[in-house]
Amino acid sequence: MYKNLAAAFAAACCISSAFSQSAPAAPPLKIGFVYVAPITDAGWVRQHEEGRQAVEAALPGRVKTTYVENVPEGPDAERVIRDLARQGNKLIFTPSFGYMEPTLKVARDFPDVKFESITGYKTAPNVATANARYYEGRYLAGIAAGRMTKTHVAGYVAGFPIPEVLQGINAFTLGMRSVDPKAVVKVVWLDAWFDPPKERDAAMTLFDQGVDVISFHTGSTAVMAAAQERGKMAVAYHSDMRKVAPDAQIIAVTHQWGGYYTQRARAVLDGIWKSGDVWGGVKEGMIRVGDFGPKVPKAVQQEVLARQQDIAAGRLQPFRAVTDVRDNEGHVVIPKGGALSDAQILQMNWLVEGVQGRIARRAG
């Protein structure tokens, strides 16, 4: 009997060994990321880098990620994206608006690779798009700025006049004027996403024009550092920037990409990835405000966080009008009681009343 048991055990071991040899563990999913600027301590790229790290932490051993930083939009982007596909990356994230067309071009040549065009709007069978409702955070930051300003004059350093940036400027202004009807917002266009010296110069120019609170839509911490230097107040964007501006920061509007990136990586691993379009905000956990600076009274903090809960619950929409909303040329853009549809928000091409500036039309 013992011989039979030993023989059976030996046979089982052989079968197990043969099965192990014939079914090795699946190789990890290779995932590539392309960053439009260098990785710094805070900013747009930092938040996507934290998203990449979140994927690694959530799926240990199942994914292998890589990134290329400081890749300009245009031909360089296409070359880098194509290289990542050739290197065997089966999921590639391209988080910059100017990466959209290069991503689509490469995707046509690599139909077995999945691409995620972050802030893009054109999809394909193997290209999904995703973006966040940054304007929700901007509106909340505007409330904080409206409570903190003494001059009733805010500044806004902006990269390019694309709809996403216009949404942010307008939501910030509407939020600010909801608590300070006299508030105005002065805009400076840079025609760049990441140019720290230029960002700093723009901030200093605005401070010289009576601005005491400033916001921005660029990629570095230069505006925050300028506010700290000049003793002004500022709204951090993309990341918490209190390390750079411990006294100047009023609030931070932060982007949370880890959950979305992990979900999409899991979908590829599980064989259920599909192209689509995601536009998430406060409700979905992709946008949040907080990280208040030391000068912000508790009452203001509580007010802003309460409005954040209202947005999450659908009780507050930045582009819903209690009274007629006009652009800064006097035209009604949201009639009383009305609200903009997602399509109208995504095609925004005007500046709201209270904004001092014009949309910088690009030549060409």
Score class of each variant (00 low, 15 high):
Y2S: 12
Y2Q: 08
L5D: 09
A12G: 15
I15A: 14
Q21S: 14
A23D: 12
P28I: 10
L29V: 12
V34P: 04
Y35G: 05
W44N: 07
Q53R: 06
A57F: 13
A57Q: 11
P60M: 06
P60F: 03
T65I: 00
T66N: 08
N70W: 00
P72S: 10
P75V: 08
D76F: 00
K90E: 15
L91R: 02
G98P: 02
Y99V: 03
P102H: 12
P102M: 10
D109V: 01
P111A: 11
D112E: 14
V113M: 08
K114S: 13
I118C: 01
T123R: 05
A124G: 00
A130S: 01
N131H: 02
E136S: 07
Y156E: 14
V165E: 11
Q167V: 00
G168C: 13
I169W: 03
F172M: 13
L174A: 11
M176K: 08
R177V: 09
V179R: 10
P181L: 02
P181Q: 07
V184K: 13
V184H: 10
V185I: 04
V187C: 11
R200G: 05
D201Q: 12
A202P: 14
M204A: 14
M204N: 15
M204C: 14
Q209E: 15
I214K: 06
T218A: 03
M224N: 09
M224A: 06
Q228S: 06
Y237C: 02
M241F: 03
R242S: 13
V244R: 10
Q249T: 15
I250N: 06
I251C: 03
H255R: 09
Q256T: 14
T262D: 02
R264D: 12
A267N: 01
V268E: 02
L269H: 07
K274I: 01
S275H: 04
S275N: 05
G276K: 07
D277F: 03
G281L: 00
K283F: 09
G285S: 08
I287P: 00
G290Y: 05
E303G: 05
D310Q: 15
A312N: 13
P318S: 13
A321G: 12
R326P: 00
R326N: 11
N328T: 01
G337M: 06
G337E: 04
M348Y: 13
N349I: 09
L351N: 12
V352L: 05
G354W: 01
Q356E: 11
G364K: 12
